[in-house]
Write a protein that binds this DNA or RNA. Structure first.
Lengths: 110, 110
DNA sequence: TTAATATATCGTAATATTGCAATGTAATAA
DNA sequence: TTATTACATTGCAATATTACGATATATTAA
């Protein structure tokens, strides 16, 4: 049916999946990496850097903004985007908690 | 067009996006969390635990297996799945590298 | 005001994902 | 062999995602 049955899962499970979904596109990873290097960027620069159309970049920025991992401030005629420090660390913590909870013991079967 | 332009991005960007995509569903997060608790599980147990149909669980297990984060071994009539330690740490490292490369300085604009 | 610039939104086509019933396959039990 | 059990695969319907041209909006410059 193409529709996730969110009600079957815990809030944490849905939340983690939502964050992962936003990271689940190379263009959005590229935008994040660009921000990690330069601290700030705008739509038109990313259009030149990534090679996707303006509307497409705008859409990816919107998704990143929607979960709060980046924020945008109007700067004259353009919009400066940067990482939202608080949300970044929140998402980082959730992912780290998941990945650190594995104790690496091989299971008895393999 | 619904098709990601992978050729525009680096191998790392595509790789990270691929791993994130597999985590981008609460059922797959739930399966992973189940494995973190119990070390091993099989399809039929997950069907009871998650409340999705057998075919659906099988499909999610397949996607997790495809990127190598879990592995399955035939045990009589059933299949035991467990976390693949090596791949787990590989994916963990990639994610940690990304999330640790942010120095938290607020940008000059916001 | 009008033009230029930058970004957002809308609409749409192509493709991907989710979920499940039905069916296929493979191993053990009777 | 035949039944049973567990899982995978197929096929399909519903929905989501990706990408972009066209257009709307908003700010500054002339």
């Amino acid at each position: 049916m193409g529709v996730t049955k969110s009600d079957l899962f815990t809030e944490t499970q849905n939340e983690l999946a939502t964050y992962a979904k936003v990271l689940a596109h190379p263009a959005r990873i590229a935008i994040i990496q660009y921000l990690l290097r330069t601290n700030t960027c705008c739509n038109s620069i990313l259009v030149g850097d990534l090679g996707l159309a303006q509307a497409t970049i705008s859409q990816h920025l919107k998704e990143l903004k929607n979960i709060g991992i980046i924020q945008g401030t109007v700067e004259g005629v353009s919009v400066n985007y940067c990482i939202n420090s608080e949300k970044w660390h929140y998402i980082k913590e959730m992912l780290f908690e998941l990945f650190e909870s594995y104790e690496s013991q091989n299971c008895s079967n393999c």
